[in-house]
Design a binder for these strands. Structure first.
Length: 352
DNA sequence: AAACCGGGGGG
DNA sequence: CCCCCAGGTTT
């Protein structure tokens, strides 16, 4: 999409910046990467925040910094250990990318200090590059995440119907740049996102306490929730039948190959396809051990878990299957939902 | 229970 | 440019 010619913002940019920064310096949340900041802390926190809210990633962040205090310790850790520390956070490619980034970083004669240089590193796109170079190197590059999209579209009461938040981010990047404080780009970027996270909520925004309300067209009109306008998304329903094979205290699990597109090196309960079996006709009529639902991106997935006698003559290696002692589940990496579900089913069986 | 959020990568 | 990734929170 063509970057729209920067429509002049309907207020004095310097006044906006001052109001925003004054508010941020007083009201920012005390987050662990903000006290004694470092490049490494900034990178780790931004990776964890890529698809996850602050509250969720906070405990992971603390454990991560204890296990991997800097780029060198992270680079020399095994991938298994890295994934283990990410377990439960989801979207595991972020962990592999961060690990790969650390290994590239320690080998670099001179680590990059500009956005283009960071975008060459694994797992770093426009958003993360802007965040890192503005916060760590004071570079004037505006971050545009979902929070910023919300704030910008409300400030100007922008009624454009965007395809999705990614295209909105692209379209609004010109304005984000026009608004950016050249003197404090790192604080400015953090202040915008902090404002979006704590005041300019998607629903019921706290306009009465907003430091930039005098600049906001949507607040003036009284309908901030009308912005941004995003095209509705379609959810697709899917269902999966999983096998629960428990024998002699060992559970049969599927481990996605290292090159798998999804859940590489992660364990989950095997589907019947994983076992080389057609989903049983019985699955439709026999009561499953458990039924769980999960929503991922645009999919609404229903997973039913059926007890299955261990099939004979399984070629474990060829099918990426492993037997894991139920007392040893902590030593492997399970996907977050399956980790919970397995614990729940074990509890269920104990009660029988 | 359904709807929503949301960066990066790869084709 | 479009689709996928395989998770949590909110309502």
């Amino acid at each position: 999409m063509e970057p729209s010619p920067s429509a002049p913002l309907p207020f004095a940019v310097a006044d906006f910046q001052k109001a925003l920064l004054t508010w941020y310096r007083e009201h920012q949340r005390p987050l662990p990467w903000r006290s004694q900041p470092s490049l490494y802390k900034t990178v780790v926190s931004e990776f964890m925040l890529q698809q996850t809210q602050v509250k969720t990633m906070l405990p992971y962040y603390a454990r991560w910094l204890e296990a991997f205090p800097d780029f060198h310790q992270l680079a020399s850790a095994s991938e298994a250990k890295v994934l283990k520390h990410w377990e439960g956070l989801g979207y595991y490619s972020r962990a592999r990318n961060l690990h790969a980034l650390a290994r590239r970083w320690v080998a670099l004669p001179e680590p990059p200090t500009d956005a283009a240089g960071w975008m060459d590193l694994p797992g770093v796109g426009p958003y993360t590059a802007a965040a890192v170079v503005s916060m760590a190197f004071g570079r004037p590059v505006a971050c545009v995440d979902g929070n910023v999209v919300r704030i910008l579209s409300r400030l100007t009461a922008n009624a454009t119907l965007f395809r999705d938040s990614a295209s909105a981010a692209k379209a609004l990047s010109t304005e984000a740049d026009a608004l950016l404080s050249r003197a404090s780009p790192g604080d400015h970027n953090q202040a915008m996102m902090e404002l979006g996270a704590t005041v300019c909520h998607r629903q019921s925004p706290l306009c009465l306490t907003c430091p930039v309300r005098p600049f906001c067209q949507a607040a003036r009109r009284g309908d901030p929730e009308s912005f941004p306008r995003l095209a509705p998304k379609k959810m697709e329903k899917r269902s999966v039948v999983r096998a629960w094979c428990l024998e002699s205290g060992r559970l049969l699990l599927h481990r996605a190959p290292a090159k798998a597109k999804r859940l590489a090196n992660q364990h989950e309960l095997p589907t019947f396809e994983h076992l080389g079996l057609a989903p049983p006709v019985a699955a439709a009529t026999v009561e499953p051990l458990a039924v769980r639902k999960r929503g991922i991106t645009r999919y609404a997935i229903t997973e039913s878990i059926h007890r299955l006698a261990p099939p004979r003559r399984l070629d474990l290696a060829a099918l990426d299957l492993v037997w894991v002692d139920v007392d040893q589940l902590d030593t492997i990496t399970l996907s977050g939902p399956h980790k919970r579900w397995i614990a729940e089913v074990l509890e269920l069986l104990k009660a029988e």
